[in-house]
């Protein structure tokens, strides 16, 4: 589904990604973790072309992302993305947030888009707030709406960029529950997160990044059992023992 081959990226002379190679198969859930500044957020933004890459290639569902001829809007419409700061559109009501992409990009009718939107809102437990505005909801609620908005486009895979790191602790669970459910339904997911509980529960593989490199890429059991690298071990002990 997603193939990342020898990807390198620079901001000016500063190298943010160095020769990253990995892949996500259909139905697989891959968690990407690592200390801040390790390039994990940058990597996931490269997957749907929000960040350009200088070297290597990224192929999503058979389409090369870093090819100038690729119709990026079309590709992105099949790839759901959830952001750290939710990024709902503040001037639209919740239901409009879910409908706008369906209507303007997929060409669905307003009625159809609203119907599908309401179904998804029901699913993430926000149906009663459909006519409110993003600013009137809590962070956890907004993030659930953001997930529903991504799902409204019927994505073939989902990207999560630190979906819980801007949330108060008591709201993290409500968002993770939605994500777990999604994973269990067989959605292909690439998730940048520090939530190791989530990784243990549903991930198939865990990738550990540091200084723009993929240091560890292993099946979950292996990763949590005994990571190969020192840096991953240190990171795990820090993050699990607090």
């Amino acid at each position: 589904m997603i193939q990342i081959q020898n990807v390198s990226k620079w901001y000016g002379s500063f190298q943010v990604l160095t020769d990253c190679t990995t892949q996500v198969s259909k139905g697989e859930v891959v968690v990407v973790c690592g200390p801040s500044g390790s390039g994990k957020s940058t990597l996931i933004k490269c997957v749907n072309g929000l960040e350009p890459i200088e070297k290597g290639s990224i192929i999503v569902n058979g389409t090369k992302v870093n090819d100038p001829a690729t119709d990026l809007p079309k590709l992105r419409s099949h790839v759901g993305m959830v952001f750290q700061h939710f990024e709902l559109f503040p001037h639209m009501s919740i239901i409009q947030n879910l409908a706008i992409g369906q209507v303007k990009v997929l060409g669905r009718s307003q009625d159809e888009a609203h119907e599908r939107g309401m179904k998804l809102l029901d699913r993430v437990g926000i149906k009663m707030h459909a006519n409110k505005y993003p600013g009137e909801l809590s962070g956890g609620q907004q993030q659930r709406v953001a997930i529903a908005r991504a799902l409204s486009m019927d994505p073939i895979c989902m990207l999560f960029d630190e979906p819980t790191s801007a949330l108060d602790p008591e709201m993290i669970t409500e968002v993770l529950d939605v994500m777990v459910e999604l994973a269990q339904e067989g959605m292909t997911m690439m998730v940048v997160t520090h939530e190791m509980g989530f990784a243990r529960k549903v991930a198939h593989r865990v990738i550990f990044m540091d200084h723009g490199q993929i240091v560890e890429d292993a099946p979950k059991e292996e990763f949590f059992g005994k990571p190969h690298s020192d840096r991953a071990q240190q990171f795990l002990s820090k993050i699990l023992n607090h």
């Binding site: 933004k45 749907n48 929000l50 990026l72 809007p73 079309k74 590709l75 992105r76 419409s77 099949h78 790839v79 759901g80 993305m81 952001f83 750290q84 700061h85 990024e87 709902l88 559109f89 503040p90 001037h91 706008i100 992409g101 303007k104 990009v105 997929l106 908005r149 991504a150 486009m153």
Partner: peptide
Amino acid sequence: GQRNAGLALGFTQTQTYRYVLLPM
């Protein structure tokens, strides 16, 4: 992030301006 959110939904640059950035 707002620009990225628009693009991630599959909006073109023009649509991102029209529906996301300019109204706000």
